[in-house]
Nucleic acid binder design. Structure first.
Lengths: 339, 339
DNA sequence: TTGAAAGCGTTACCAT
DNA sequence: ATGGTAACGCTTTCAA
């Protein structure tokens, strides 16, 4: 059933030449090693004919690099991460890298386990949305000379490449947009988190409301609650307790989705009763009636920078470690929900 | 910078024993090989102490299996595939397998290329949503003894495991639901495709309308058009040309999304003017006002069966190849859009 | 009870 | 110009 795999040795034997020669030709070193045109041709033809493909496994073992990058995110089924996955895939494959994915659920124990598992697989690099308390694990990776790029959030105090967006500024602007649109009491629904992206969004919101001395309330939902769908109830309760809110800013799209459901249940009209803006744009925000204003993260640029940054570290020729710390701007799309 | 990796050899040297002994202990064969409790303990302690992890790469090379499964889908950013990705991930990791993903864009050339690339990586198995014309590539994989499971669609004439859903029956039922709800002229919007899942959905629709002799029209959008967003226009045009449609059945959720936009633009009321049902449920269908009726595919079961089936093939102990051909039932959720 | 050594498929150094 | 061979890190057979 299973066909015997042909190896470089078989080729050498079949052609009555040495392994070395075949290897050189295979690696395009025929010229350099001054192997005759004729032999080169012959070998290439034969290789073509039998459809030989070198074993990446053996190469990895020999070269010490596996050409595999781990894409470790909070949840690969989340549309933001899935989209990034799709975008980096292309660039990775183009550069000869494969991508293994895994989801941490924002659980640091799970993340640490995953990291050790991958280390024994000799992967070359990690693209990570760090969970809380991942400092040491990341430091170790760096210490072992692995390529690492963080994204979506970064870890203060760790000198490491990252690609994030302007969370604070965008949150500030979105909030200001609500206030300038006439909101006198604006609510901020976010996830309880000490991670940079959430902290910054909160800061942006607070900056805006304080600046204009606007009445406001904040709801922080626990992360696990989102998975367990009690987020919806929390939001409903929040909206009931703050019936006079005339503006709502959600720090993530999934919170906004829950919020929209709650608003519908309370028969609140958007934007008449309450204006709505969400962080992290989504296809549906355009589809929903009314269309929902949102801050769009530049997915393409994020993916570009992510790959650029990790390839830079993976590049043999670049001397010394080159860290890139990139913060990309977002775009606020004002739609019906906040006009 | 880069720490030297400790190998089994280093351990042997450090402890003044042979590599073999260490290997035996590492692989839990201490008992079997009757290695003294004392030595075993010593080795284990040392391993613990220096935090040694065996190289999976070397093991793979030696054992001839990499413990890697390729998850090759149409588009990993599509929520259906991303959700499945999330679900199989867990099961795979639990069984010591890692998952590499890739997207084919339903392009058979790309798919073939990806398959050859992965073969040289010595992956153990493939979970694939086959593109058209992938027959030979799949047959080769099977022939080489690799584990293969198709899903979402299968390839008639190829004896291979697959996990699909009851496309025809569900499409039939959904259409019948519209007709029984009073629709006299129902439209079917689908993707132009010769693949089983789409063919079956079309069959189901046709069966239902013919059975009840109901007036109907069909729009087949080209696959590439969806990516290029001209699908939206096609659908708009279709709706204009068939202004008397009072029922609409979309064969996929992304077509339904486009359709909803078009209906909104034409100021058609759902379900008053036209009732709507879509294949492939989505979080958003619950959120949309009115809520959209949809056929939900059993994601969990699909993922379960996918892993079960591939692990069965991967299992050393199971004699002979065991193909599983699984067809799972869906669930029609009747919501406001078709009541 | 433990060890030596072959072999998995490569690459690259050192010979010739 | 081409070939022999050690090494990458591991498993496993055979020998002691």
């Amino acid at each position: 059933m299973a066909k015997k795999k042909t190896s470089i040795k078989d080729i050498a034997k079949a052609l009555g030449i040495s392994i070395t020669t075949v290897s050189f030709i295979l690696n395009g070193k025929a010229r350099e090693k001054r192997i005759s045109e004729e032999l080169t041709r012959k070998v290439q033809d034969y290789i073509q004919e039998i459809g030989y493909k070198p074993s990446h496994l053996a190469q990895s073992l020999r070269l010490g690099k596996s050409k595999v990058i781990v894409f470790m995110v909070e949840d690969i089924s989340n549309s933001f991460f899935a989209s990034i996955a799709r975008l980096i895939e292309e660039k990775a494959y183009k550069n000869g890298y494969k991508i293994i994915y895994c989801s941490t659920d924002n659980d640091s124990e799970k993340a640490k386990e995953l990291i050790t598992t991958f280390k024994m697989r000799n992967v070359d690099g990690f693209i990570i949305t760090p969970t809380p308390n991942l400092d040491n694990a990341i430091l170790e990776l760096l210490d072992e000379g692995l390529a690492v790029v963080l994204f979506d959030r970064w870890i203060p105090g760790i000198d490491c490449s990252y690609v994030v967006v302007e969370n604070e500024i965008s949150a500030y602007e979105a909030t200001k947009h609500l206030i300038q649109g006439g909101c006198n009491n604006v609510g901020f629904v976010t996830v309880e988190s000490s991670q940079t992206q959430m902290v910054d969004r909160l800061k942006g919101f607070q900056h805006a409301v304080k600046e204009s001395n606007t009445k406001h309330s904040i709801l922080e939902v626990k992360f696990h609650a989102i998975a367990e769908q009690e987020a919806s109830e929390k939001i409903l309760e929040f909206l009931k307790n703050h019936a006079d809110l005339d503006g709502l800013f959600f720090s993530t799209n999934y919170l906004a989705f829950e919020g929209l459901q709650s608003l519908a249940r309370l028969h609140k009209q958007i934007p008449k009763d309450v204006k709505v803006v969400s962080f992290d744009d989504h296809y549906f925000f355009n589809l929903y009636q009314p269309q929902i204003s949102a801050i769009e993260q530049p997915l393409e640029s994020i993916a570009d920078k992510l790959m650029e940054s990790i390839l830079l570290q993976l590049d043999e020729n670049s001397l010394g470690r080159k860290f890139q710390k990139i913060t990309l701007p977002n775009e606020l799309h004002v739609r019906q929900s906040s006009r």
